[in-house]
Nucleic acid binder design. Sequence first.
DNA 1: GCCGTTTTCGGCCCGACTGTTTTCAGTCG
Length: 592
Amino acid sequence: MSKVNKAGLAEALTEIGTLLELQGENPFKIRAYQGGARVVEALGEEELAQRIAAGTLDEVKGIGGALAQKITELHRTGRLGFLEQLRVAVAPGLVEMLAVPGLGPKKIRALHGALGIDSLARLQQAAEADTIATLAGFGEKSQGKILAGIRHRVGYGRRHRWAEAARAAEALLAGLRKLPQVQQAEACGSLRRRLETVGDLDFLVATEVPEPVVEWYVSQPSVAEITARGTTKASVRLEGGLQADLRLVPPAQFAFALHHFTGSKDHNIQLRQRALAQGHSLSEWGLFPAEAKHGPSGEDGPEAGARSVPAADETELFCHLGLDFIPPELREGLGEIAAAAAAAGTLPRLVEVADLRGAFHNHTTASDGHNTLEEMVAAAGALGWEYVGIADHSKSSVQACGLDELRLAEQVEAIRSLNASGRFGTHVFAGTECDILPDGRLDFADDVLAALDYVVASVHSAFQQDRETMTRRILRAIEHPHVTMLGHLTGRLLLEREGYAVDLERIIDAAIARGVVIELNANPYRLELDWRQWRKAAEKGLLCSINPDAHRTEGLAHVGYGVGIARKGWLTAEQVITTYPLARVKKWLAAR
DNA sequence: GCCGTTTTCGGCCCGACTGTTTTCAGTCG
């Protein structure tokens, strides 16, 4: 049993990178640590442990001898001397100063060196006392920005759940598209990549006349503050703290800029390296012969006369580099470029909302839902679903008005007669979201569960159990003959609550062995199992059920959020049982 | 610190904006 898990190792490498930055170290060394952290995160917990044990960690691209040694030391002993020395050498207040917009490692070092500022509190005092403006390289404006940054840092630093960011983006994007000067407009960044949380919004516009577009953008009522404004870029802070950048490019550049600002950073770096290897330089400006970058003028950037290879859209851009189109959700620098190489041709056809035929795990007024059985079924029919599963809470979830055996039997009876009545074209499956009790037993006896079409087993209590106890608890539920799938596996609530400690790999392997499905809970607060787990798990044979965990009719459409995460997890329709037609799902359930 | 059909040294993705400078450094994405 290791002392520090994968997340802890990655965190330590990131911290080293940050501390080295504040020490003014070589930027490439810093990048090596940051890159190493991402590589560690992308490895499986099991593979990581095996490589550490076997001493083959340095065979992984991005991890060399120095990082391998440090990872190994931390993993084996729970401590890392190098990091501990760095923590002593760098005042802890400097790290939190990085969160102030406009302050980076260099300026923080200058403030520390010249004025002895080593905390946010001292920084604020110095700014209020007007001493920062006197420092070389600083002025009135930077001092004012620092003060504003400290005051707003709580709201500024926050990330936002994808669904909320998407709502904020929708209105601005629709407005941009209506402007007569705008030929194309898209939201890029982590929103387009469907990351579960979004730090800021990035809009891209194709236009020949940027000025009026910028003018419209910065004067929107939702804009609280304008932080930058030029002819190719404007940055604003929206009410609520979300930063929203707008970039404006000529139409011919749109595809390149769209790709660039969609990212991720890792993906872009890798794609540029591929371009360079093919003799091209790729940027948001276009794709140029590599030598055109430094012409006789000696100026950086593409020469005025240099012509980019044209690309009408991203598909053409990828094609120039010998690649199939890579969906934005996959652009995380986790092997998508190799898979898209024409020779490989191994990019999956990702699942789409239109593939979905139904969903399990939905609630009604019988437990803590807000709509009746009939209303939920009608809403499912309106979405075009062939079937919908009802899985209300079980009796131990008293706080959620869980059903006891009697009420469950009544609900099953109601569902059977609803199906028989032919009132709805949507078939209803009778299930339960059955509590996994603290000792791993289920909340209902076998004969009760046997009368249902399916069982979602979920943890709703004793979250504080240690990792081993929690893992055994869920493993015991998986062994239960009537369990069809596991609900919200770690119980996380995005930006609110970490998931409970659990050995995901053991659970995934056991689920595969027993033919138990794991839910992709599409509730915008949950979005788990996390997308980083799905690709490997599905390759090993795990099946997914995209479930909205709907508590009202509108909640059924949350499956769209789940599809975004499933796509990030490289899932195809075949790996998602809720894409199966009704007949196939019935057969599949009966065979279990 | 990492890496290698430009290989074991000398590179490392690339550009815009701001504020401060008077040609650029720092920050950000």
